[in-house]
Design a protein around this nucleic acid. Structure first.
Lengths: 201, 201
DNA sequence: GAAAATCTGTAGTCATCGATATAAAATGCC
DNA sequence: GGCATTTTATATCGATGACTACAGATTTTC
């Protein structure tokens, strides 16, 4: 007997586009130009679809952005769990975090306009829903950093977290302003030395 | 005989509002909510005037923003010429710059929403004209910092400038996110120690 | 007081935004 | 083939953005 198999094709007229591909395309557009500067018309044009198809699939522009954020933090965001694995020396982990951020935020040759962090930049948009979605992801990341530091250096957790987050923010902005990987890495390296000095005291 | 005296009152119907006060009001609004989020309707309502009066006085929203930026850098921006006066020890000057930024970026009790730097935040808006106006002011400030460092530490000028600007950006963002003066000062202090260490090597 | 100059208030223009009503087209199931 | 289901395409909607045409009001100058 054949086991029950999920029908590879649901009933009704088939979709003309792949929602996962659409999310990936939208991710690149939001990263290159920012949430506010990308209109639904821009997206539907890029996907070769019409507005009703867009809204049937994603509900709203903010709904698509939530999908994009999920994909971004899964595929392109900083791998915090790996970087901040319990037991890793705090100075080493934070240095690796800063270096990884510099590498990821730098624009690559494939898409020179897409630089910086989608979560950090997304918090500056003018849509409250989208802003809060990005803010929630950012808060979780900040709390992860704080908890990692606090496990062994509770007295310095807040100050060091504030400092690291400030530098990450500056790196994202600098990347968007066009700074290349080398300059971002130099900034990250300087910041890492400050972290080391603060922990040694 | 009486000397020619510039008529204190020009011909025609007198203005119902003071343009200088209007620029000050708009500065507070732009700082609190950002360029894009403040509409011309918001401004005319706050000033108690109608759109034609606004456009007769300022030409455009971007035109008003240029006036606001001029006023901001004259009255509320970082006093770079004083902080980076020639001959001042570089580490001391940069530490003072970072500390001054933390103090100025922090929200005050009078207007809790107005935090951060108008020039840095203005570069993120979606209007090209306004963005370039803020960018020009920012570029001049960055170049002033770079030249000040290069006068005595040319080899480290670019790296240190990138680093200081990144931290300033992070401080402005953190201030807008609600961090109080103490936390901003702690971040600035950590950054200043990194500058000192980099210059001592 | 008449003329010239300048500002004000009413009432719009036009473009763009996010989002939708409606009906036709394309599929699976019976 | 006929029906239920789902997506598609056309053609908007209502709100809001920056900005302005026009006529009336208020002032100085002559």
């Amino acid at each position: 007997m054949t086991t029950d198999f999920p029908s590879p094709r649901p009933r009704g007229r088939p979709r003309k586009f792949d929602p996962e591909m659409a999310v990936a395309t939208a991710q690149a557009m939001f990263l290159a130009r920012g949430y506010d500067a990308v209109s639904v018309a821009d997206i539907t044009e890029a996907l070769g679809i019409n507005p009703p198809s867009f809204y049937a699939a994603f509900g709203s522009k903010a709904g698509l952005f939530a999908r994009v954020l999920e994909r971004y933090s899964r595929c392109n965001g900083l791998p915090l769990e790996e970087l901040l694995r319990p037991g890793r020396p705090v100075d080493e982990a934070l240095a690796a975090l800063l270096e990884e951020a510099a590498n990821r935020y730098a624009a690559n040759a494939a898409d020179p306009a897409a630089a910086g962090c989608l979560v950090l930049e997304g918090q500056r948009c003018n849509d409250p829903t989208a802003r809060e979605a990005a803010g929630a992801l950012n808060s979780a990341a900040v709390e992860a950093i704080r908890a990692f530091i606090a496990a062994r250096h509770p007295a310095q957790a807040e100050t060091l977290t504030d400092y690291v987050v400030a530098v990450l923010t500056g790196l994202s902005t600098a990347a968007r302003a066009g700074q290349g990987r080398e300059r971002l890495l130099a900034t990250a390296g300087l910041a890492a030395r400050a972290v080391r000095a603060a922990l040694a005291s």
